[in-house]
Amino acid sequence: MVRELVRVGVADGHRVSVACPSSGPLREWILAEGADWVPLEMRRSPHLSDIRAIARMRNLLAEYEVVHAHSSKAGATARIAARMSDRDAQRKLIFVPHGWSWCVGGPLAVAYRAFERRMAHSCAYIVAVSARELEVGRRVLGEDAPLIVIENAVDTEHWSPRGPGAARPVEPLVICVGRLTEQKGQDRLIKALSHGELWHVRLRLIGDGEKRSYLEELAARTGVAKQVEFLGECDPAPHYRAADVAVIPSRWEGLSLVLLEAMACGCAIIATKDGSSEMLSPAGLEVGGDTDADVVSELAASLRKLLQDEPLRTELGQAARQVAERCYDKAGWTAKYRELWDRVGYLR
């Protein structure tokens, strides 16, 4: 999403800068696209280094006409900086959480809810990326919170069934794309493979993250290590085209871009309820449950069902592509963000 906004801003002739850590590929991509890179080192969890990040955010709010804060951590830092500045700084700030901070659960969930309620009005708009995220936000933040919804979208020309497919095994191939984290739920999918009748299935994980070692150990411990490929970071489009089924096993999401990419590529999809599967109906299978064990069991059952029914996979893949083209193409999304930028400028 950040990359698409950068492209739109640069194409419209704006001066665009992206503040992000120096590690990872984003910095080089930003410079190649004609935008400026601003170093901003942050950790996901609260840390003393956040004091420096807040100071940097105050400078950015003073310098730029519109400031986007993407993710809960960036949003928290930017809104604290805006509160320490003036009302003008708050009016130019747009916060896009991409999944509410309290959804992580654990001992900090109550504190995150209280913080978000307190800071809800310290920006011009909070952008929910799905109708469900908007609904959940209103329940916690209040009806008067400056919430709007702009659903995520993808380039349906790039993410398309047309194009080269990756090499694949003769066995059924399942793909799962995303950072290897607790949130994305790849552990659920690995556990599902250990259920009966899935011994022949190959799972291809695309992405990297702090849970990679744990997931490799889990695959070995559950006896499916030879079935799982860890590909790291790469373009997933050819792999979507090669796969029999794409799975989104997330524990929480705003609106999964991976889900939309897989839909646009015409994949047969299985998604957890918390992985934004309500956006998928009727073009895929939804799984859920009160516990992780319930979700794992439903994932295994849904995989068996789809992998044994090629006509159903074809039907679901075609329906998913149609939904993506009709509802989630980036053209409408781009227009809504341009309108939002104009609105923020007017508020000032």
Rank of each mutant, 00 (worst) to 15 (best):
S23I: 06
L26G: 00
T222I: 07
S85K: 08
G254P: 08
G275Y: 00
G163A: 10
G178E: 04
V344S: 02
A109W: 02
V140Y: 08
F115G: 04
R188H: 12
S213D: 15
P21N: 11
G178T: 07
T181W: 02
P146F: 06
S17T: 03
R138M: 09
A114E: 09
H121G: 10
P164T: 03
V38P: 00
A319H: 05
E339W: 10
I126P: 06
S23L: 07
Q227M: 05
V8P: 02
H200T: 10
P161L: 13
K336T: 06
C265G: 07
E210W: 10
R79C: 08
A153K: 00
M263E: 08
K305Q: 12
L259Q: 08
Q183E: 15
W341C: 06
Y337P: 00
V201E: 04
R43G: 10
V224M: 00
S71I: 01
R343A: 12
L340Y: 04
A293R: 13
D244P: 01
H14Y: 12
A319C: 10
V38I: 13
A301G: 13
R91A: 03
P25S: 12
P169H: 10
R221Q: 14
E4P: 02
A55M: 11
G288N: 11
K305H: 11
S17Y: 00
L40S: 02
M42P: 01
A19S: 08
P146I: 00
R326L: 14
A111D: 04
P39A: 10
E233D: 15
P25I: 05
C267M: 12
T156C: 13
C176Q: 03
A225I: 03
G345V: 06
Q318V: 12
R343S: 14
R179Q: 15
V177G: 03
D342R: 14
F230M: 03
N59M: 11
L218N: 13
G266L: 07
P164M: 04
R132Y: 11
G185H: 07
E253W: 03
I94M: 04
G223E: 06
G163M: 09
E171Y: 03
I175M: 10
D309E: 12
A131L: 11
A271D: 03
L134A: 10
T291E: 12
G196F: 05
R188L: 10
I150P: 10
E133G: 02
D329F: 01
S213R: 14
A89Y: 03
H200Y: 07
G332D: 14
L203K: 01
A335I: 04
E116H: 05
A11N: 05
D294P: 02
V18Y: 02
E278F: 12
